[in-house]
Design a protein around this nucleic acid. Structure first.
Length: 519
DNA sequence: GCCGGAAGTT
DNA sequence: AACTTCCGGC
């Protein structure tokens, strides 16, 4: 503890917005055990009182302007108990985010930076298919927000580290977007490192999916995945008064409601690459930090990100990394209020590796988030990564292996990559035991649950898997749909439905009134 | 203003 | 790890 550190007040209710507890917790930052700069920036950005100091840039997605660099630096210094902090230093810290792809600089605009939200989100929704002709607003990007709360059950309820928590994003699952415009040396440099590390990142993500498809791997291999950033998701309706905030709440009626679409089993069981690895000290998502899924907003958000990226003349490589995303012909001049023109497709109930081929020929049920259920096969066209040749052999091999082992994609004659949204992890994620006792909702206890326990959750279902393998895919799907429904309903009633009532079942965060001193 | 290397700090 | 501090270069 340092003396002389100022106290940073947590905004009191009312107009003030509060970040989730984890954002304030000292353990929010793995390394420093302090708040991270980007947390802080976001924090300032969403507070009305700092609008004159830092604000979202009009019309640009996730872009913000530091209007008063000195003041921001001062605030940051105060928060970090670094009275000597100045903009020069702060900006150095921001520049470190370039390589991490948390931020990038908006060239030519002083004090203007941009969050790589697309990177933060897209890879987490491989199942989202933005169809051609779809359009999305460029401004006021919808993102999972208070009104659009995604809420997936944990994919890794058996995760040894419990590092998959509902409603959190992770950049480790986020392949670097390559959002940087690659026109100067430094960014080419970034590109190189991207080729090196990011594709590894991507593969890690795929690996994760792979492991989720395989009972045996049990996710243990990912135990060591480095903690990364997650997109803070805020759940209080109306807390983003700024329409240009990526967190802005859509004014549209309906958007403000939670999940007004049918929830398919695919939704809750789809491996959305929620490979969230919380920072070591990150507190579990509290009830208020949970998020659910509003497909409209997600869709808008994703497309606008696509537009945003392309408008930036950014590397097309950005997209191939998002196997679920089909970049539509861009028509970015769209209003947030425009009705959805492309449905978000959710994955069908998964098929086991063995049955995959069979099921491919039979009709696959895919679930659209739009009210009607569409029997569209969940093949999602994705640009073929052009840098394949440049990929290190090892990665290529990995890729091949993944293609073989994971029902994640096929390559058609034209070389287009059809990413099949990866099948969910082992079904046993919905435990055969009482859903209540092993609710996917990660509670506090689960945080410390060792991998062994987690595996124990999975194993009892092995017999069923065998059975399944012998079952016609259709039947199997149906059975799973029906069979899991009960369990799912139970768990969803505690995860999604509570959102409606506004009373989360789990409130983990020790949110005492105050927590103010953050030094 | 912005960039990024290098070394130091927590 | 995530900065902080310093600095030379553009």
């Amino acid at each position: 503890m340092k003396a002389g550190c100022s106290i940073v007040e947590k905004p009191e209710g009312g107009g003030g917005y509060q970040f989730p507890d984890w954002a304030y917790k000292t353990e929010s930052s793995p390394g420093s055990r302090q708040i991270q700069l980007w947390h802080f920036i976001l924090e300032l950005l969403q507070k009305e009182e700092f609008r004159h100091v830092i604000a979202w840039q009009q019309g640009e997605y996730g872009e913000f302007v530091i209007k008063d660099p000195d003041e921001v630096a001062r605030l940051w210094g105060r928060r970090k108990c670094k009275p000597q902090m100045n903009y020069d230093k702060l900006s150095r810290a921001l520049r470190y985010y370039y390589n991490k792809r948390i931020l990038h600089k908006t060239k030519g605009k002083r004090f203007t930076y941009k969050f790589n939200f697309n990177k933060l989100v897209m890879p987490n929704y491989p199942f989202i298919n933005i169809r051609p002709n779809g359009v999305v607003p460029q401004s006021a990007p919808p993102v999972p927000t208070a009104s659009s709360r995604f809420h997936f059950p944990p994919l890794d309820s058996h995760s040894p580290t419990s590092d998959v928590q509902p409603g959190r994003f992770s950049t480790s699952s986020l392949a670097p977007s390559g959002q940087e415009s690659l026109n100067d040396a430094s960014e080419r440099k970034a590109e190189i490192s991207e080729l090196e590390d990011s594709s590894a990142e991507w593969h890690r993500s795929v690996d994760l999916m792979t492991s989720r498809n395989s009972v045996t791997s049990g996710g243990i291999s990912h135990q060591k995945r480095k903690p990364d950033i997650m997109l803070p998701l805020f759940t209080r309706p109306g807390i983003y008064p700024d329409p240009h905030s990526p967190f802005a709440v859509s004014p549209l009626p309906g958007r403000g409601s939670v999940l007004n679409v049918p929830i398919s089993p695919a939704l809750s069981l789809t491996p959305t690459l929620f490979s969230y690895s919380p920072s070591p000290g990150l507190s579990p998502f509290t009830g208020s930090s949970c998020f659910s899924f509003n497909p409209d907003e997600m869709k808008h958000y994703l497309h606008s990100q696509a537009c945003s990226v392309l408008n930036y003349h950014l590397s097309p490589r950005t997209f191939p990394r998002y196997p679920g995303l089909m970049v539509p012909p861009l028509q970015c001049q769209m209003h947030p209020e425009e009705p959805a023109q492309f449905p978000i497709k959710l994955q069908p109930p998964p098929v086991g590796r063995k049955n995959r081929e069979r099921v491919e020929s039979s009709e696959e049920s895919s679930v659209t988030v739009t009210p009607a259920m569409a029997p569209t096969p969940p093949r999602i066209k994705v640009e073929q990564q052009t840098e394949n040749q440049e990929q290190p052999l090892r990665e290529k091999e990995e890729q091949q292996r993944e293609e073989r082992s994971v029902p994640s994609g096929t390559i058609d004659e034209e070389g287009a990559f059809f990413a099949r949204p990866a099948a969910p992890p082992a079904w046993p994620l919905v435990p055969l035991t009482s859903p209540g006792e092993e609710s996917p909702e990660l509670n506090e206890g689960s945080e410390d649950r060792p991998g062994k326990d987690a595996l124990a959750v999975v194993e009892p279902n092995a017999p069923e898997k065998k059975e399944d393998a012998l079952m016609p895919p259709k039947l199997r799907l149906k059975r799973r749909w029906n069979g899991d429904r009960e369990a799912r309903e139970l768990s969803e009633s505690s995860k999604i439905h509570w959102n409606l009532s506004g009373s989360p079942p789990l409130i983990a965060g020790p949110r005492g009134g105050g927590h103010s001193s953050r030094c």
